[in-house]
């Protein structure tokens, strides 16, 4: 079926001085992805995970795991690296479910493609744990809905089972040491202050 539409334009001429037209081609500033103003090591790992650059993450992890990697102020570079990861893995985001599902899937694909990488396995386990924590939220345990607890425990168990199945490789990286703390209230894994539930509480989505 074909339909013909003829559009007759009217604004034929625009008399902006030609030079002015191109001189005004300023580039709009993009919202930085991710936000600036953080330690370079954190910014680099945050950016690498944000864009899905496993090779860069593996390289950074190998570097910052070496002994004696501390900044002059005493801050562990490995911690700064992991803070960048946490900004993706524990991201506060509206409608987190599809985001967390993709993160689980992406990190699993990385682990499958790099079966001898302890970091890849650890990162996948972290993703599963974070997925569960997105249901638990960061508020008081008493405020978390029963169905959210169920999903939380399901992902926690899945993370533990995954690490157990891949323990011979995964446990070579201390990032695989998960410390879930379902009763905590105050800060998330990345140290950010808790102020709101990510989706825990009575309105939590069931399933996942």
């Amino acid at each position: 079926m074909t339909e013909t539409v003829t559009r007759t334009g009217r604004a034929r001429r625009l008399l902006l001085p030609a030079a002015l037209a191109l001189a005004s081609l300023a580039s709009p500033a993009l919202a930085a992805d991710p936000a600036p103003g953080k330690p370079p090591i954190t910014a680099a790992s945050e950016s690498a995970l944000w864009w899905g650059d496993f090779a860069a993450l593996e390289q950074q992890n190998a570097m910052y795991r070496q002994a004696g990697r501390f900044n002059p102020d005493g801050m562990s570079q490995l911690s700064q690296f992991r803070n960048g990861l946490a900004r993706n893995v524990n991201a506060r985001i509206k409608n987190p479910e599809p985001y967390m599902k993709e993160l689980d899937a992406m990190t699993l694909q990385w682990a499958q493609a790099n079966p001898r990488s302890p970091f890849a396995h650890a990162l996948h386990a972290r993703s599963l744990l974070a997925h569960g924590e997105s249901y638990r939220g960061t508020g008081f345990a008493k405020d978390v809905a029963e169905d959210s607890w169920q999903v939380y425990h399901r992902y926690l168990n899945q993370a533990a089972a995954y690490l157990k199945d891949n323990a011979d490789v995964a446990l070579a990286d201390s990032y695989a040491t998960l410390r879930p703390d379902p009763d905590r209230h105050g800060t998330g894994m990345d140290g950010r202050a808790a102020g709101s539930h990510r989706r825990g509480g009575p309105a939590a989505q069931p399933g996942g």
């Binding site: 985001i93 509206k94 599809p98 993709e102």
Partner: peptide
Amino acid sequence: RPPLALPPALSSRLLSA
């Protein structure tokens, strides 16, 4: 599912938002 997962830069915007 497509054979490759979307990285966070894409899933946050295309799927969540």
